[in-house]
Amino acid sequence: MLFSCVPVVNMFVALPLGGIGLILSAIGLVMAITRKGSGIGYPIAAGSINAIAVGVPLAMAAFFGMVAESGVTALEEAGREIERQEAARNRPLTTKTEGASPEPTVSGGEATGSTDTQESSEKPTTDESSPWANASAVYDGEKVKVEITGARIGKVALETFSGDATSRDEFIVFTLQVTNKQEAKKMEFRGWKHGTFSAWGATLSDEHGNEYRAASFSDTVAGQANIESIYPQKSVGDLLPFEVPVDAAKELRLKLPAAAYGEEGVIYLVYSANEVNKIELKPSSGQ
């Protein structure tokens, strides 16, 4: 009886002993009946105690089984919720604007365009199911519009305690414009620069699968957004420096988490490498 209340132990001690006790109690009950009920109270009492010894472990096993099952169900539901949130957070946001990606024209049976035939044949094709297939230099969403207004390769202008400076190395620098399309609600824009604890830093890659590190400076990048309030129908700019892409890159791909302005999803923007300008800044002390 005592062991029946101890989890685990009751299954290996109380349950077998209780089962044996029930069998012996049943035998005693039969013998008492054959003796015209003499001493019948003893097997009944023993049977009751052994029934409790058997019933308690079974009830505890059923209870803990239901608790474990509900716990597993809760964990599975939590896992599905995390997956749903992750899918929403990484949902591709693209807008295919007309004329954003010029296509070669056909003349005399041959394709003509800004690149020659050999370069076109070597350029990897984009899978139609990929978000990049529907991306352009502009994302025009319901609440916000994001546009790459330009890109250049050169030194990065910095703001230091001692005055203006430039970086030692050259980077590719994208200029973006973010517009709040809402009529009455302002939005908080944190910018897409990379930081130690930033979950919304921009990433850059190309059609060949190359990934480029975002430039990091101890000083402030001139023109880079920090935390801005964008009022309805107003715009702010942002500036994003990265490693210089390889010469073979023709398609520069930016991914911008919408978490930077409080929404879900990831904006996909594509910019033609042919549109990148080469600009020389006056050298000065810097990083």
Rank of each mutant, 00 (worst) to 15 (best):
D206S: 06
S205K: 02
A199I: 11
L239D: 06
K234A: 09
N274I: 03
D219E: 15
G262H: 12
S205R: 04
G209E: 07
R213E: 13
T203W: 03
A248G: 01
Q224S: 08
Q224C: 07
D219L: 00
S205E: 05
N226E: 15
A260H: 13
F242R: 00
S229K: 12
G237Y: 13
R253K: 14
G201M: 05
S216G: 09
E228P: 01
S272D: 15
E251G: 06
K234E: 10
R253C: 08
S218W: 07
F217D: 09
W200E: 12
P232S: 09
S235C: 10
G262M: 06
A258K: 05
A214L: 01
L256A: 07
E228F: 02
L240F: 01
N210Q: 09
T203K: 04
L269G: 05
Y271H: 13
D206W: 05
K193M: 09
K193E: 12
V276R: 13
G195A: 09
H208D: 08
L239A: 09
G209I: 15
G262C: 08
L269W: 03
A259H: 04
K255A: 14
F217W: 07
V236W: 11
D206L: 06
G223V: 12
Y271M: 05
S198R: 13
G209C: 09
A202K: 01
V244R: 12
T220E: 15
G191L: 03
P241C: 10
E251K: 13
A249L: 05
W200M: 01
S235G: 08
E263Y: 06
K255W: 02
K193P: 00
K193F: 00
T203H: 02
I230K: 04
L256D: 04
F242T: 12
L256E: 06
V246R: 14
G191K: 10
H208G: 03
V236I: 10
N274K: 12
Q224T: 07
H208A: 01
A258V: 01
W200V: 07
I227H: 15
G237R: 14
S198W: 01
P257I: 05
E243W: 04
I230C: 07
D238L: 04
E211D: 10
D238H: 10
Q233C: 01
N274M: 07
E211G: 06
